[in-house]
Nucleic acid binder design. Sequence first.
DNA 1: TAGGATGAAATTGCATACAATTACGCCCGG
DNA 2: CCGGGCGTAATTGTATGCAATTTCATCCTA
Lengths: 223, 223
Amino acid sequence: MQVGMRSDTNPTLADKLAAAIADGILNGKLPPGERLDEVGLAEQHGVSRTPVREALRQLAMSGLIDMRPRKGAIVSKATPEEIESLFVAMAEMEATCARLAAMSMTPIERRRLQARHEAMMALAAAGETEAYSDANVAFHSAIYAGAHNAPLAEYAMNLRRRVGPFRRAQFRMDGRLLRSNQEHDAVVRAIVSGDAAGAHAAMIHHVSLVEDAFEAFAAINAA
Amino acid sequence: MQVGMRSDTNPTLADKLAAAIADGILNGKLPPGERLDEVGLAEQHGVSRTPVREALRQLAMSGLIDMRPRKGAIVSKATPEEIESLFVAMAEMEATCARLAAMSMTPIERRRLQARHEAMMALAAAGETEAYSDANVAFHSAIYAGAHNAPLAEYAMNLRRRVGPFRRAQFRMDGRLLRSNQEHDAVVRAIVSGDAAGAHAAMIHHVSLVEDAFEAFAAINAA
DNA sequence: TAGGATGAAATTGCATACAATTACGCCCGG
DNA sequence: CCGGGCGTAATTGTATGCAATTTCATCCTA
């Protein structure tokens, strides 16, 4: 579910375009700083500029792109400080969701989270990076949902999308999978046992380490 | 500053329309559930439907209105449960900002927050509801800014806007001003002294009590 | 050669026109 | 009197056209 996305019984072209463009951004086909030409996108998708403009506005509000009047739109390009802020914000949002999840998840949700986590242990041990990455998104989404608070879950998911373009290849690092899984273990234990403060702390710890991985990655790339 | 709002050296019609419509919603001229007719808004503002539609999309992404394809837009109307979620989300966001502010505000920012708080004491004592309300927004905004994290500040402000239509007349209750000010005192003391956990707790307490005021207000209205 | 003025091309912003779906009143049948 | 089908009006979605600003290359000048 997406922030403010129009309910999708009959999605409009603008909605589909927004999804397609967002996909391109998250896939790296549209890297940060890339110019988003209205006529280009329109021709590329075989539509007129009107729905393209509406899609761009949607994406601008989500923070995925930047628009400046009369200057056009680009994929959001952030300074290192802004990227740092995004990671801090995401850590805080995830930690908040984890805290609420520890307080308000149902017993069934807790068991399912535990099962999900255990399944991921096998993936981590087998080094299945891709499958682990997908499962990881689902794992965090389960925690968002467990907070039982739609606005917070939407913000958390939105932030996760926004940092996406800046954290590619995070799991490529040696031992990252196993370490991630160990951190998940602390998070899951706290949530399952209803330890709100512990869940918060464990999640902040976890996401902050992901951030470290990014910093290292950025440093390597800069060299 | 608004989430994703286009930088405003030369704001577009859509941006100005979005601001105008948002203003109408926050002022109560456009109550929750009100239908937002595109041609009506266009004629009312003397523009065509195109910028109106773009403004509506912006507002939809901010959560202030709901759009359903081919069904039109309405001012967001929430169930009591959804309103509760909004208040919880706002409390969490504000508390997170307060926690970060306690950790990262500069000495100057701390002193200014203290001064702001002390000025509000006088307003509360004098029962100047309107001035206090304005100062209250500035007070909370100062804390958002003190978190030194633009994304979180934007989310917090956005949530504050979203709950606006559902918390009108909150300060009308007897003694609410003085109580609010006392709660602010706890928040300010924690932030100024760098007590992150205390700031978080005090802010959650404060915003939760505002929520209680809403609940009471809603109950009275229902009767 | 560097710098700035200039003009055309490209691009965005807005308005208008058309298409398609929905909403609503009306009539008819039961 | 009530409910369902039907047709028209109203409303939204999309395309196209025009105006205005920006951008970029070119040329002129110091």
